[in-house]
Amino acid sequence: MKINDLEQLESEDITTLPSTERRTFLKMGLAVTGMYLSGTVLSLTTAGRVNAANVVPESGEYPYNPHYSMVMREHLCIDCERCKEACTKTNHVPSHGFRTTILEKRRSLGGDAYETIFVPVLCNHCNRPPCVRVCPTTATWKDEKTGIVVMEPSRCIGCKTCMAACPYNARYFKEETRAVDKCNFCLDTRLSKGETTTACAEACPADVRVFGNLADPDSRVFQLLHSPGTTVWVLRPETGAMPNVFYINS
């Protein structure tokens, strides 16, 4: 098109737009802004379920029964790693991966003094598991009865999206099976065979790991989490995954 022809064309700027068209456009803009604004205003009000203090679900609000969970009495952990050994042996975990491990923190006590804190970690069997949500082949899911996040290795295509989605680094790719592997609270190796606890909890000499049914008010996990004056915390609560591994110091 020549420059002379272009000059002959009608302008496409807003001066030629009919006013109704402009108004509808403006309305749409306001509507979108309003939507976002109202969302921001709503988020200022208290949302009961996202309260950091309530990492333990209210009694009677456990989605499963048995609702398996683990309580870590953190200050008692001495990193002897018998839990790791027991887990490796029971669940045939290769040396390049782990289903459970111990993390180490150092806390200043002022001056040159430091305190070491060992943090046992494993799959948190979240009530809203990000790993389950992202799996394209439904190779991982929440067990309907127990709430345990289980894996079906034969369905896994090894895309590792679940590994990226997990906020707890609780999954690893098992070369031997060409599938992602993770803690399942020893469901296949122990619980389904009548055992009442996991291999790691049984192996712990310091009674750090307490495993049990949170839906049962008589269980030790329930008692520990509901005793007065106890501070209960979970790892990375901000992810909203609602983990089922709880940490206490009493």
Partner: peptide
């Protein structure tokens, strides 16, 4: 008390 004052674990 203070378990990790003496227990250094496998890592330590």
């Amino acid at each position: 008390t203070r378990c990790t004052a003496c227990h250094i674990g496998v890592r330590g």
